[in-house]
Design a binder for these strands. Structure first.
Lengths: 202, 202
DNA sequence: CACGATCTGTACCAAGCGGTAGACTGGCGC
DNA sequence: GCGCCAGTCTACCGCTTGGTACAGATCGTG
């Protein structure tokens, strides 16, 4: 594995997680196809053979970057679901999402969407990987809301799946907006409207 | 201009609007960068010199395709805003949008987003063009809602700009969902939830 | 029926793509 | 301090990219 440090031989001149973070930013900003190896290596501060020795291929690098993105950025929003009520969970999820999408420490928007919603036929796998990631997040929201339904925390007649889809769709739309320069306040104002309409508030 | 038929010389073997529609589909499905000239020419059924003679360059072809997309697909949704009330306008806009995003006669999703939310540094213009198109649509929604506010058709304290942003964001999120295979019914269920929450209904 | 104008098709261009061979570098164990 | 070996660096690979030169085809006109 690339994570264990070998006992012998010349040591690496870079930290794997550091350059992975920089690669993630490049993919985030330019998408999978838009982030060429030249863009990647200059962002990561290493050259091609080092990249290939450490990560295997551009696609494997992207998968590592996306996994790391999930473990850090997406995990924030998913963790926000852990609130006592469905309403509070949705609000926390949308707030955390809006904040993450407009965090000045990273490119605006969401890697899951910017990475490659549409791709060249050769890279169709990338779109699928990203879609699977978004579906997993939506499933987490739905799971939380299904629990709420069982607990009587959701008004009768509200479908947890449809509500989860609504919440995810809004979050994805905010990602598109953020990518086009919408401010954090803009997104929170949109969240306000969504929450007002949910009629989940006790 | 390429639209006027010349009196002399060999006539074109293709109809410009027909091949433009096919190019639009290719861009829609694969994005600007993902739709290579090989993909485009084989989808359009013409070869490169004909493409360049008729459209000038890949970017100009894309601009024509995007303009045509706006005139047909986006115009549908914008026309839906022409309803007697704000609530009816929003509902019609979201319904028309959901239908367009899942129309089986075209690729799933929205060219404005699939075209290239994130691009290679060289093609940054493309992202800007697409973002400008989305902003124009949002401005049309906001204009309709501002009129509603003047007419007393919007509850006090509702900001037309924020509401327009919410509506557009939801529609964009539905586009992302549609691109990942969400069904028309899925999207309409999400619209139902949004409408329930708007508290615009008299 | 030849001319001029325009379109089509093949075959090409330079540049960039993702990926790699091979010489060189430098820290550790003996 | 010498050998080992993983890492770095330069320079390259074949292939695709967006874009075009040029020859031949096909029309209207004189």
């Amino acid at each position: 594995m690339s994570t264990e440090t070998p006992a012998v031989g010349r040591p690496r001149a870079f930290d794997e997680e550091t350059v992975l973070d920089r690669a993630t930013e490049a993919f985030w900003r330019h998408g999978y196809e838009g982030a060429s190896l030249s863009v990647l290596t200059s962002a990561m501060g290493i050259n091609r053979p080092s990249l290939y020795a450490a990560f295997g291929s551009k696609e494997q690098l992207f998968q590592r970057a996306f996994a790391r993105y999930h473990d850090t950025q997406v995990a924030n929003a998913r963790a926000a679901l852990d609130q006592p009520t469905a309403y509070a969970s949705i609000e926390a999820f949308l707030r955390a999402s809006a904040d993450g999408l407009t965090d000045r420490d990273h490119p605006a928007g969401c890697l899951s969407i910017q990475g490659g919603l549409a791709c060249s036929p050769d890279n169709a796998r990338i779109s699928e990987i990203l879609a699977a990631g978004r579906a997993a997040t939506e499933a987490a929201v739905e799971e939380r809301l299904s629990r709420a339904a069982k607990e009587g925390d959701l008004p009768d007649g509200v479908d947890p799946g449809a509500l989860a889809r609504f919440v995810m769709a809004l979050s994805e739309g905010h990602a598109v907006h953020a990518a086009s320069g919408a401010s954090r306040e803009d997104l929170h104002a949109s969240v306000d409207i969504a929450l007002r309409a949910l009629a989940l508030r006790q």
